[in-house]
Design a protein around this nucleic acid. Structure first.
Lengths: 142, 142
DNA sequence: TTTGGTGCAAAGCGTTTGCACCCGC
DNA sequence: GCGGGTGCAAACGCTTTGCACCAAA
């Protein structure tokens, strides 16, 4: 999604477009394929808009998440990471454990999972499939 | 794994068996099929050993994790959850979103995942497949 | 002009740590 | 008795909040 589209969505939802908010959107759009720590987002936003404040970053991330524009997950230490939602069709991910880069894959074993859940008398509401490893770039470095 | 086996492993690794540590092991063994929040573990341990202290709980959980006896994950809010590792053979899980109960399943699409990773020039090191939903018991309640 | 956005500082919460004391071995 | 285990309190890192001020619409 482009920054312009994101801004339109914010306007439609009656949010004001401030310089800081725009800077944060640009940061998220530039790294649309990577899960970013809040602190990383903060530092990158500060480069574009030096007055950027951490609490404002948190507040804006929360707004974007509530509009279903951001995906939020806790990393293994419990710190929050965000990334722009790329699209709304169902898919899974390749995740680089080194740099956090994410790539979508289309494979999904849903039909099989449904059978397994039914066998176990389990009411399936969601599922998660993640492939963790090293992207081409990071594998080369090692 | 029984408490006796767990205690043996601790002894082998030169850890002392204290009343508090034993109480915590009993709690973990009683809920071997459930991801527990640290605070839940703390409260349950206190019932068995009232002097139980939160920092001791954390220190013991850390020891058990370092011995590869506990599985540690951050929940969606970033708080840590633990459960006894049931066995070391590879498998995935059904997870009840209501009560946290976990059940193992044997299905694993590893062969397919290997192909996908190879196609994308991605060096696969791990993968995660989780089925989220309601267990029989919680589905009935709703 | 109005109302939401922001900076700052303080509080909140889960987790870790330093230190003196305790207790299993 | 020794060395690891513990309780307590304080510090920690990340996140949230209250309030006065600022600026987009």
């Amino acid at each position: 999604m482009t920054i312009y589209e994101l801004i339109e969505i914010l306007k439609t939802n009656h949010y004001k477009i401030t310089a800081q908010r725009k800077a944060l959107l640009q940061v998220m759009a530039e790294h649309a394929d990577t899960l970013l720590l809040v602190d990383t987002i903060y530092e990158a936003t500060k480069k574009r808009y030096p007055k950027t404040n951490m609490s404002t970053v948190y507040r804006n991330l929360e707004i974007l998440e509530s509009l279903d524009l951001l995906h939020k997950v806790a990393n293994e230490n419990g710190a929050m990471q965000y990334k722009l939602i790329c699209c709304h069709h169902h898919h899974h991910h390749l995740i680089c454990s080194q740099c956090g880069k994410i790539e979508a894959i289309d494979y999904c074993p849903l039909e099989t999972l449904k059978e397994i859940a039914a066998d176990k008398d389990f009411q399936l509401t969601a599922h998660k499939l993640e492939l963790i490893g090293l992207c081409k770039h990071c594998a080369k470095k090692k």
